[in-house]
Computed example of a mutant assay.
Amino acid sequence: MGELIKVTMPKWGLSMKEGTVSDWIVEEGDEIEKGQEIVEIETDKIANVLESPGSGILQKIVAHSGEVLPVAALIGVITDGAVSDDEISAFIEQENAAAAAAAVDEAPDPLTISKVFEWEGLNIRYIDSEDGEDPLICLHGFGGDKNNWQFNLAALAPNRRVLAPDFPSHGDSAVSAEHSSPLAYAKMVSAMIDQLELGQVDLVGHSMGGLVALLVARESPAKVGALTLLAPAGIGTEINAGYVDGFARANSRNELKALAGQLFADKEMVTRQMVADLLKYKRLDGVGEALVQLAGTLHSGGKQSEDLSSVAQSLPTKIFWGKADEILAVSNCAQLSGVDVEQLECGHQPHIEAADVVNKHLGG
């Protein structure tokens, strides 16, 4: 009997319960390789492409375009070797029954529960997988939040403890212009490490979150074991100041849609729901003021305000950078020496556009 490999609906969002099969890129009977893009999936947050979990023949497409299925539901079957139709039918029936039973017995996922700690009189929201060693804190970018790690946390949690906070004036954390600066955020992360008694941690930071990670390493070096920086601010001088200031001041759907398109190499990854969520966030009381102030700390005269390349060179650091980044040019890392820099075929969102590569490095 040959091997049967299941293709299932992925869990790409911390709150994702279901997804829609958009289009299959391959057809039944096609020979495919592990890691090959095989089907487009759309959630209420984002559209992305699912990669094959194994090599073989796509023997059966179980879920077709337009079908909405819960996370972990079977959507296709790959075979490696000779398998009869009866064996495939029995396998599909067995997997569907197992998925239904798991849905009934499933305990709440810690990564779907928003927790809180107090810092400087502010409620800071975060998520925490709770279990595992080698804690990793994931730091989002300008205007982002903890949900930006939707393609990473679930993949990493089985192998290590992962945490993701919302910076002040972002996500579900308290809004405070006074506490909205990269240095303030670094102090918040340091306090989080102490309050949760995490000991030494690894940090992964995207964009502005990369600058925050560098600042934590500079100010509290004993607390940081290693850095992973994703299209980071704080390296080099070039920055798309027009994007930063534009996002800080944007207050319409059309403005935000155009700006969000600059984040991805594949503009189709920007969904209507993504834009709606950004607009809802931008219209919260005090957020606009806080972001305008924060933007002013990130650049001056069209250049980045701070270059912390020397910090990246002082401890184990891995950098992933998209070749098509429109926000922070990959040329910013040209002057680095002694740092492992990997350029990827993506835009400003390596942890989303090249999630498997980033997750593999982080231990997923």
Rank of each mutant, 00 (worst) to 15 (best):
E120I: 00
L328S: 01
E289N: 14
L136M: 04
E95F: 14
L215G: 06
F142R: 05
A157L: 09
V116W: 01
I113Y: 02
L291T: 00
R161H: 15
N332V: 05
K6F: 12
V49F: 09
S331G: 15
V26P: 01
G261R: 07
K360D: 04
L291F: 09
G296T: 06
M16Y: 00
I61D: 04
A354H: 00
A312L: 08
G81R: 13
E27P: 03
T8K: 14
D145S: 07
I75Y: 07
A157I: 08
G66H: 07
A248T: 11
D44A: 15
D266A: 05
V49T: 10
D194N: 14
I38S: 04
D325W: 11
Q304M: 13
V212S: 02
V270Q: 02
G236S: 07
K60G: 00
V77I: 12
K60I: 01
G296H: 13
T271G: 08
T8E: 12
A222V: 14
V224R: 05
L203H: 06
E130G: 01
F142E: 04
V311G: 05
D277G: 14
H348M: 06
K223C: 10
P165A: 10
G19T: 02
V357W: 00
G205L: 08
Q262D: 04
A213M: 02
C333H: 15
D356A: 11
P10M: 09
Q293G: 15
F167H: 09
V7R: 11
P168A: 10
A334C: 14
E345M: 02
A103Q: 10
M192E: 07
L336G: 07
P221M: 12
K17S: 09
G171S: 00
R160P: 07
V287A: 01
H179V: 03
S252R: 08
L344W: 03
E306I: 11
G13E: 04
E342Y: 01
D166Q: 11
I88S: 02
Q335K: 15
T43Q: 03
P165K: 01
E3L: 00
L336C: 09
D44N: 13
D86C: 03
A99I: 10
I124C: 01
R218F: 05
H170K: 06
V244P: 02
A174N: 08
I78W: 14
S15C: 05
S309H: 11
I327V: 10
E130V: 15
Q94W: 13
G234L: 11
G171H: 00
L58Y: 01
T79W: 01
N148K: 11
R125D: 00
A260W: 02
Q293N: 15
K60T: 06
I124R: 01
L203T: 02
V212G: 06
K146G: 01
E255Q: 11
G141H: 12
A295N: 12
L294N: 07
A107H: 12
G144Q: 03
A233P: 03
K267L: 06
A97K: 14
R253E: 14
L229S: 06
V175M: 00
D145V: 04
V116T: 14
M188P: 03
G56D: 03
L263Y: 00
K280I: 13
G56M: 04
E37C: 10
I327M: 11
K280N: 13
T8Q: 13
I38K: 06
G261L: 02
K146R: 15
